[in-house]
Design a binder for these strands. Structure first.
Lengths: 163, 163
DNA sequence: TATTGTTATACTCTATAACTATA
DNA sequence: TATAGTTATAGAGTATAACAATA
């Protein structure tokens, strides 16, 4: 039905044919992700961490004593990326890391008072962002929408990465 | 309603609490985008352009004589990013650029035979990717899903970028 | 040997700013 | 002045690989 070769015509009037790009769900996914990302960043203003760092700090606040391996597994980031983020956060007084005696390989992270405070401020802004996003999506569509996103993440790799 | 603090427990058995991250639609969007992106890349194997370059080449194939400004506007990329891509594609024999007499500022791009051939091969792989993605989404949900993504892109910036 | 984490390095993708050349 | 495009540079954001310490 929606196969009207949805062209993009600029202000100059020229119609740009999108061809197969028209069907690329990935392009819509990226555009939506970028829009959501930008909305959150705009709401944070200057008082913020990068989104990836916010994710990590939030995991630490919610799970005091979490290890870097656990953070990486949960946030789906390589341990080296986590290490870099943690070092920055420690240098900036947001987290402290402890090496327990029972296993001195691991580094357990906890948020400092400053870390907790920043996370709370960012979470508050995050909730405003979510309210705007949810208003756009609509409560009637929200669950089905997220469920579809989840299924893409879970089921697509099984089909695709068979080489 | 869905506030059961959907935790993530790793193989070690420890439950990681996601807290507010649980509600972050942006995380699901990014994960889904990355999954789609990876699936496409896996299918392309070595015979490929980067996804952004494929977008540009496809625009050129579908719109011979398109200008760089038009490409940038359609692909939502800065002219400098487009210029870099075009130079690489020209150096690698995929496109040629012409400067018309009526306006010698503009560069109009056309695909070479090699460019057309590569685009066709990539488009074929892209269609396989889309088939897998559409199978995951399901034809009954597809239109509503894409419509939601579109609305996020179109409506969210209006609410968020008011500073 | 396996695991945790660190570091150096590099890659992808993209934008900003200063620029040239045209119009 | 405004527009099209180029170039140098920078900076997220992330991963790979080699490594040290510990188990």
């Amino acid at each position: 039905m929606k196969d009207q070769q949805a062209d993009s015509d600029g202000p100059n009037g020229r119609e740009i044919k999108l061809g197969v790009l028209n069907d690329f769900v990935g392009m819509y996914l990226r555009a939506a992700y970028e829009a959501a990302f930008t909305d959150f960043a705009d709401r944070l203003g200057e008082d913020r961490l990068r989104p990836g760092y916010f994710t990590i700090l939030t995991l630490i606040v919610n799970n005091p004593g979490i290890s870097q391996t656990e953070i990486g597994r949960t946030a789906r980031r390589d341990k080296s990326s986590v290490a870099k983020a943690l070092r920055w956060m420690e240098d900036n007084g947001l987290v402290t890391r402890l090496r327990p005696n029972h296993d001195r390989r691991t580094h357990l992270s906890e948020a400092t008072e400053e870390g907790y405070a920043l996370q709370r401020r960012m979470e508050a802004r995050g909730r405003e962002h979510l309210a705007a996003l949810n208003a756009t999506i609509g409560s009637d569509r929200r669950e089905a929408f997220i469920e579809t996103l989840r299924e893409i993440v879970e089921r697509l790799p099984e089909a695709g990465s068979s080489d």
